[in-house]
Each structure stands twice: as structure tokens, then as C-alpha cells.
Design a protein around this nucleic acid. Structure first.
Length: 806
RNA sequence: GCCACUGUGGUGGAAUUGGUAGACACGAGGGACUCAAAAUCCCUUUUUCGCAAGAAAGUAUCGGUUCGAGUCCGAUCAGUGGUACCA
């Protein structure tokens, strides 16, 4: 054993041993005791960043620790290879997206291997590989035939100069990132998947996910946003047109003082033809970004249409306004304005001097407007004095009975728009005949591959411009036809990759049904930023797969660890912000074990971690001390003094128990590491003071090597191979040692009126009365009690005594 | 704006079920070793007062519940993530 710790040579040697260990052939055919650990696969953006290292180290700790328990662990890795950055790189540096992506993948694979993550590399996949997206296209056609896919007009950010659709990220201050042109909203036909048909089951099945964080489930629940309410019809005063507004608060119906419609509402559009002010208003707000966030933050503006509709009960005339803050896709694009009881309506009404009528009174005292809670109805005709809860029912009944509206269940969730006007994505496998009809590509012609030779200038849609690829002959009729030039949203690929990981090279089917027992994923690990979209889409996709009979479970991910972000300068690390940290430099300087150790020690996995490189040295120092102590124990003369051994084993056992719960149950790696450090310090002191036998020292250092093995596997392999060579490659999780249980003394605290005043050591076997007597006799306590009366006494066994005195 | 989360020493964090706030580290200060440095080791390190024993204050802010609150409740402030075309 070398005296000094040389991580680079140790790590290289150990990694080469791991590589040489033959992967088990057809490992997945045996699913007994299976444990499927999945870390979210990366977008191959070029280099791994610290966020990746954190994610994959956590996944590896879970993998390796469960392997040490004897589980049959599967941990795959692959590449979410389609996406926008590849196209941006192509435009900027004139490299083909495929070439760029492949180069990145090769580099990042090497980086992952340098960190020492134990992946089943034989199951690697890339979503840009036609063998992968073949089955995505195949499945899409099944969904199309089932009627779960449809086309409709939908708004996008349009760059009028580059003649291209922009992602929200590419719109900066309302302008195109490349051209600088003012972005317009434009409606184009797009493909949608009917996720709303699954809204209820996606909501209800959240209850089955006991291994998920409550916060993620809550976010998904709120995102789906199921609400019961009323669609209320407001009849136009000019004609028979009905403005239908959805509300969850029919109890405020008497407070309606205006109707607001979106700038895309048919009425707004038709009025703009004859009214130049309305036309200008619409034009002004058509150039804002298409995002919920932008809409919600926009300064409210509106324009009166000069038209009215009737209040459905009072028949009063209500003005109709066009407002810039009404979202089209949500609800009906019509809002009934109740300023007294809605924040946004209140703001709008104040701005344009519209009537504000309070119709709900708070229970106790008068409260400020807008008043959002429920209460008692006032100014509401026959419903005065009724409370909100009751009024909701009564008013709904009234509306239904008089055919003025209907009860509806509404969801916030919208259908999933899956088409993108981009090159670097999976082609949508349909084509169009000249008569406009849409046809799926026959199964035997799949996969539809991307053409290599494309013009990636940043102007227009490369596939649409590629006449050679686009124009085809219909395989069924022999007529001229054109391919769909849209590609899939990249969330499409990441919605089912966990399935394909089981059988990535299968050329005949999406995966071999014999591998079904490996589902669902036992532990999924990934960033909290995916809490809603990716995880919801993947859950949805899994339900689609189930309905197709391809899988048997309800949910794809049994347990989820949603890891916090690694922030730099207070913000998410991303290439576009230029605040990434390259882990290579740290690995070169300190080794992979140090970076693994540090990243786990720095913060609990679920919390955000603000990166700073100053503290990493501490982890390195610890590993050096671990190495040095191992060396000393290995090489020093035998010591047969066993007098303190029992205490050392008791301490070791405590730490084994602590680390076991921290790693397997709490997933609290920072505290597990702190406990291991504490044990090393303790043993180190005793060993130097020669207060423990060599035999016990060996047992202790071996225990540390095993406890630390999932976290820093290279150094632990090297240490274990010195003490217990059989276990170096496949270590077994340590069990506690036999010890002599001595009478336990424990320190309890004594409080006077809840304030800590003294401590006493007691034997745990003492009776309550004796402990109290001991406490009362304490000199400090006597000083405080003096001749005061003890009003109350709190006794928590082995913890504390609290005297409440007067 | 809305939804979710977070806020504890100079810094990262610990306190697992409401019961000793600051474990374990980083940094800083002092010391040992050395010709010197690096490395290593030892001591101190929440703040204020005090030679000390000790006392008081203290977990973003304000308030509440409780014998007892970092932990529970209400309000406020700040930061982070998401907000449907970044992934």
C-alpha cells in the first residue's frame, strides 16, 4: 500500500478493473430482486456541468448502496439528443447538428466514466438514433388511429424577418434573438395530443405515488387544476350571440359589472374591421410573447367595444370590453368581471372607472376590497343573507333550471402541443395529399429519417425548404404528396426512454415483453425543474402505453428524488447564461472521489446548492486522512490492548445505524458523510493513542470503507482490497458488531420555565421519581426554585425535566 | 401575477416526532514542526458583557399557540424553480 493518496492513479486503475469485469449477458432476463435506478438523461450540450455531477452521483449512490444489499440493480444511461441548442450551434458555427451532438455525446460519456458511475453501458441509447425514434413514430401512428391526436390552429412567436417560429427563450424583450425584429403572434396549424382526456386519471393516480415528494405532487395537482363551476351565458344586446364565461364563483354573479373578451375573440376580430381604434389595440397586443407568464405580468389594458350584453338574472346592461390579459387557451376567452371579488378585475375596473359592487360580506368585520374569500351574500336580490357555500349550489341550480348556464368541470391543463417547426427533432410520420387529406406513413416505411443535406441558416424551416425530402409519392395511391415538415416536441422522446432502456437494440418491437417485470422504475432521480412538464408527460405517456397493452403498471416511477438545482451567482446554471462550472478541472486536481464526496456533503440533495469552489479542499483533506489512517493500520506494529475496544465498537455500531437510515431511508447524504467523518476522527484518535487493538482497528477501517463505498467507490475499493480483497469488487453493506451492553448513562437537561438551567447524568434504568428527586437536589435548580411554588412538572424520559415555577 | 420550495454563525450546513440551537466541515486567528515554505498536527472561533465562573440576546421580519417553537399557525419581506416552444 502506497503511503500517500494519489487519486489519479487509484481511480484509473480501479476504473479499468470495473471495465474489465464482464457485463453479465442478458442480465435483464432475470428480474428477481430487481431494482431499476434511473437518473434523468442529459441533453448533450457539450460538457457535463456540476448539476449533472450532482444528479448522477446521487443516482450512483442509490445504485451502489442497493447493490451492496444484494439487489439486482439496473442503472442505464443515454442521451436526450434532439433539441434546440444543436440547431443554434449549427447556425452559429456552421456544424451539422448530428455531428455536433455526436461529438458532445462522446465527450460527456467519457466524463461520466471518469466520475466512476456504474452504468449498464450496454443499454445506452440516443433519442436522435433512428432505431430509437422509429418506435416513437410507430406509437404516434397508433395514437393517431385511435383518435388521440388532432390538428388545430395555435399561436406561436413569429419572427417576421427570419420567417421562423421562436421558442419563448429566443424572444428577448419582445424581439427575436437573432434578427432583433419585433416578434408577432401568429396562428399556425399544429398537432396536439389529448392529454386532457387523461386529466382525471393523472390527478387521481397521484395518490398512488407514495414515494414522491408531496411538493411535486401538489404542483402537478395545481397544474392540472380541476375545478367545478358554471358556464354562464350572457346574451348580446345587439343580436342572439351568447358570451359564455366560466366561473368557479357563481355566488358573485350579482357583482358582475363588465364582460372582458380576449383580443382573439371572434367579436374582437370582427369589430376590428370597422373600428380603427380596436384594430390598433389588437395590433398592439398581438406583438407580445406567447407565454402564460408574460400574459399574467402584462400591464392591464382594455378598450370598450360600444356593445353590451344582458345580465342573465337582473337583465341589466353590461358593457363588453376587449382586454389584453384574457388568456385564450384557458376557459372560453370570456371573463365575467367581478371587481369587488377578484384582484385582476378590481385593477381593471379601477383603471377604467367601471362599477364596483360588493356582493360578499366577510363574517366578522368589513374587509377591504377586493375580498376574495367566501362570506355572506349582499346586494344579491333573492339570495341576500345566504352564505357563499350554499349560494354556490342555489345559484347553480337556478342557472341550470332556467337554462342560463350549465354546470361544468373545468381543467387548467391544456392539450399537449407536440409539433415544432424545427429540423433537429423526430419527424412526424404523416404526409398530405394535394386535396389536403392527412395520411399516416405505412408501418413498413418507418422510420422516417431526417435528411442530412439541409440549409441551416436560421431562416425559415429547414425541412420545409428541403423540396427533395418534402415531396414524395403516396405509397398507397401513387399520387403526389408532401411530408409533414414539423418534428416532435423533445418532451416526446423523454416521455418513454425508461421503457426503451430495457431493450434499446430491439429491431422488431418497441421492447421485449419478457422484460415487463423490470417496470416500473424503482427510483427516479432528477432536477426539480422537471417537476411538472417532463414528469407529467412521462406519466401520461405511460398510461397511453398501458392502454395499448404494452405495459401493465399504472405509473412509471415508483419513487422520485427531486434534486435541487446547483446555482451559480444565484441562478440556474445554463449554457445560455454562461455560468456553468466544468467538473473536469476539479477531477484533474483532486480526483472523482473528491468531487463526488464534496457535492453530496455540501447540501441535502433536495435543496438548492449555491456553488463555490472554496470548500472542496475539505473533502480532499478528509480522503487523505482516510487513506493515511488505512495505511497506518495496515503497516503499524500489532497492538493487543483490547481495553477500549468495546466502546469503539459501540460507537461504530451507532454510526452504522445512523448511516444506514441516512442512506437508505432519509436519502440524507450530507449527514451520512458527517457521521462517517465523526467515526474516522474517533478511530484515528484512539489508534494514535494506542487505546484500541489492531484487530478492532482493522474492523473499523473496513467498516468505514464500506459505508463510504457508494459515495467514493475508488478509494474504498483500494482500501478494501488491502484489508479484505474478496469484498473489494462486490462489497456487502456492513452489519453491526457484537458488543457488551453496559449500563447506559445519559445526560438529561433541566429547565426552569422552559429555560435550560442545568444538566445531570442519570442511569437510564432509574425510575421517574428518582430522576425528579435528583434534579430537585441539583444546586443550580435549588437556587432557582428557592421557595417558589412548582406549578407544573414536565418529564420526558431520558430527555428533560421542566419545572414550571411561580 | 399564479403554483411550489427555501431563509439558522464570516461561509456550506446539523438539530430525524415540538424538548440541550450551531453537529460535521470551510474560512479566519493563534501555536507546533521547518533554514523557509508547502503539507500535516494542536488550540480558539454565534454576538454582547465578564479575568473567570457565568449572564443576556439570538434561527429573515412581525404576531400567535404551547410548560417549551429553528420546527406548528397567521401575516409580511427576500431569494430560487416552474409558468405549457430551454431541457
Amino acid at each position: 500500500m502506497n503511503k500517500d493518496y494519489h487519486p489519479s492513479s487509484i481511480e484509473k486503475a480501479v476504473q479499468s478493473i470495473w471495465r474489465k469485469t464482464e457485463p453479465e449477458k442478458n442480465k435483464l432476463l432475470n428480474s428477481k430482486n430487481k431494482y431499476y435506478v434511473l437518473s434523468m438523461f442529459p441533453y448533450p450540450s457539450g460538457k457535463l456541468h456540476i448539476g449533472h455531477v450532482r444528479n448522477y452521483t446521487i443516482g450512483d449512490v442509490i445504485s451502489r448502496s442497493n447493490k451492496m444489499l444484494g439487489k439486482n440493480v439496473f442503472q442505464p444511461m443515454g442521451w436526450d439528443a434532439f433539441g434546440l441548442p444543436a440547431e443554434n450551434a449549427a447556425i452559429k458555427n456552421n456544424v451539422h447538428p448530428e455531428e455536433w451532438t455526436k461529438k458532445n455525446i462522446n465527450h460527456m460519456r467519457e466524463q461520466l466514466q471518469n466520475i466512476g458511475i456504474l452504468y449498464d453501458w450496454q443499454n445506452e441509447l440516443s433519442t436522435a438514433d433512428p432505431e430509437y425514434f422509429h418506435w416513437e413514430q410507430w406509437f404516434f401512428i397508433k395514437l393517431l388511429k385511435k383518435g388521440l391526436v388532432y390538428r388545430k390552429l395555435s399561436e406561436v412567436n413569429w419572427d417576421p424577418v427570419d420567417q421562423t417560429v421562436l421558442a419563448n427563450e429566443q424572444v428577448i424583450d419582445g424581439k427575436g434573438w437573432r434578427s432583433g425584429a419585433k416578434v408577432e403572434r401568429k396562428e399556425i396549424p399544429q398537432w396536439f395530443l389529448k392529454i386532457t382526456e387523461y386529466a382525471d386519471v393523472l390527478l387521481n393516480d397521484l395518490d398512488k405515488l407514495s414515494g414522491w415528494p408531496e411538493s411535486v405532487k401538489l404542483m402537478q395537482k395545481n397544474w392540472i387544476g380541476k375545478s367545478k363551476g358554471l358556464n354562464i351565458n350572457f346574451k348580446s344586446c345587439n343580436n342572439d350571440y351568447l358570451y359564455t364565461a366560466f366561473t368557479t364563483r357563481p355566488d358573485t354573479i350579482f357583482g358582475v359589472s363588465f364582460i372582458a373578451i380576449s383580443i382573439n375573440h371572434p367579436t374582437a376580430k370582427s369589430l376590428s374591421e370597422s373600428n380603427k381604434y380596436i384594430k390598433e389595440f389588437i395590433k398592439k397586443y398581438q406583438s407580445s410573447k406567447v407565454s402564460e407568464e408574460a400574459m399574467a405580468k402584462i400591464d392591464k389594458d382594455g378598450i370598450f367595444t360600444d356593445q353590451y350584453c344582458y345580465h342573465p338574472i337582473t337583465k341589466k346592461k353590461i358593457p363588453i370590453w376587449i382586454a389584453n390579459y384574457i388568456v385564450d387557451g384557458y376557459g372560453t376567452g370570456v371573463v365575467m368581471g367581478v371587481p369587488a371579488h377578484d384582484t385582476r378585475d378590481y385593477e381593471f375596473a379601477n383603471q377604467f372607472n367601471l362599477e364596483i359592487t360588493r356582493v360578499i360580506e366577510s363574517e366578522n368585520k368589513k374587509s377591504d376590497l377586493p375580498f376574495l374569500d367566501q362570506g355572506t351574500l349582499i346586494n344579491s336580490d333573492m339570495f341576500n343573507g345566504v352564505n357563499s357555500q350554499e349560494a354556490l349550489n342555489k345559484i347553480s341550480e337556478y342557472f341550470v333550471k332556467n337554462k342560463l348556464g350549465e354546470e361544468v368541470t373545468s381543467f387548467r391543463l391544456r392539450d399537449w402541443g407536440i409539433s415544432r417547426q424545427r429540423y433537429w427533432g423526430c419527424p412526424i410520420p404523416v404526409y398530405y395529399l394535394d386535396d389536403g387529406t392527412v395520411h399516416p406513413v405505412p408501418e413498413e416505411d418507418l422510420p422516417i429519417k431526417l435528411p442530412k443535406d439541409v440549409d441551416l441558416s436560421g431562416e425559415g424551416n429547414p425541412l420545409d425548404k428541403n423540396e427533395k425530402w418534402k415531396n414524395i409519392i403516396c405509397p398507397r395511391t401513387g399520387k403526389r404528396a408532401t411530408r409533414e415538415t414539423d418534428t416532435f416536441d423533445t418532451f416526446f422522446e423523454s416521455s418513454w426512454y425508461y421503457l426503451r432502456f430495457l431493450d434499446p437494440n430491439n429491431k422488431d418491437e418497441i421492447f421485449d415483453k419478457k422484460l415487463k417485470p423490470w417496470l416500473p422504475v424503482d427510483q427516479y432521480v432528477g432536477g426539480i425543474e422537471h417537476a411538472i412538464l417532463h414528469l407529467l408527460y412521462a406519466r401520461f405517456f405511460f398510461k397511453l402505453l398501458k392502454d395499448e397493452g404494452l405495459v401493465d403498471n399504472d405509473e412509471p416511477f415508483n419513487a422520485l428524488l427531486s434534486q435541487g438545482m446547483v446555482l451559480k451567482d444565484g441562478a440556474k446554471m445554463s449554457k445560455s447564461k454562461g455560468n456553468t462550472v466544468d467538473p473536469d478541472m476539479i477531477i484533474n486536481k483532486y480526483g472523482a472521489d473528491t468531487i463526488r464526496f464534496f457535492i453530496l456533503f455540501a447540501a441535502p440533495p433536495e435543496q438548492n446548492l449555491e456553488w463555490s469552489d472554496s470548500a472542496i479542499e475539505g473533502g480532499y483533506k478528509f480522503l487523505k486522512r482516510f487513506w493515511k489512517l488505512s495505511y497506518l493500520i495496515k503497516t503499524s506494529h500489532k497492538n493487543e490492548d483490547t481495553s477500549n475496544d468495546n466502546n469503539i465498537l459501540i460507537k461504530t455500531n451507532n454510526i452504522i445505524n445512523k448511516v444506514t437510515t441516512d442512506i437508505f431511508e432519509r436519502k440524507s447524504y450530507n449527514t451520512a458523510i458527517a457521521a462517517i467523518m465523526e467515526l474516522l476522527n474517533f478511530i484515528s484518535k484512539n489508534f494514535e493513542a494506542k487505546t484500541m487493538s489492531s484487530h478492532t482497528a482493522t474492523k473499523s477501517i473496513e467498516t468505514i470503507a464500506k459505508l463510504l463505498y457508494p459515495i467514493t467507490p475508488h478509494i474504498c475499493y483500494a482500501v478494501l482490497s488491502e484489508f479484505n480483497e474478496d469484498q473489494a469488487l462486490n462489497p456487502v453493506w456492513p452489519e453491526i458488531f457484537d458488543t457488551v451492553d453496559e449500563n447506559q448513562e445519559v445526560q438529561i437537561i433541566i429547565q426552569i420555565n422552559g429555560k435550560l438551567r442545568s444538566r445531570v447524568d442519570i442511569n437510564t434504568k432509574l425510575r421517574k421519581e428518582d430522576v425528579i428527586k435528583l434534579a430537585k437536589d441539583d444546586s443550580k435548580v435549588q437556587e432557582y426554585i428557592n421557595d417558589k411554588e412548582i406549578v407544573k412538572l414536565i418529564y420526558v424520559p431520558n430527555k428533560l425535566i421542566n419545572f414550571v415555577i411561580k
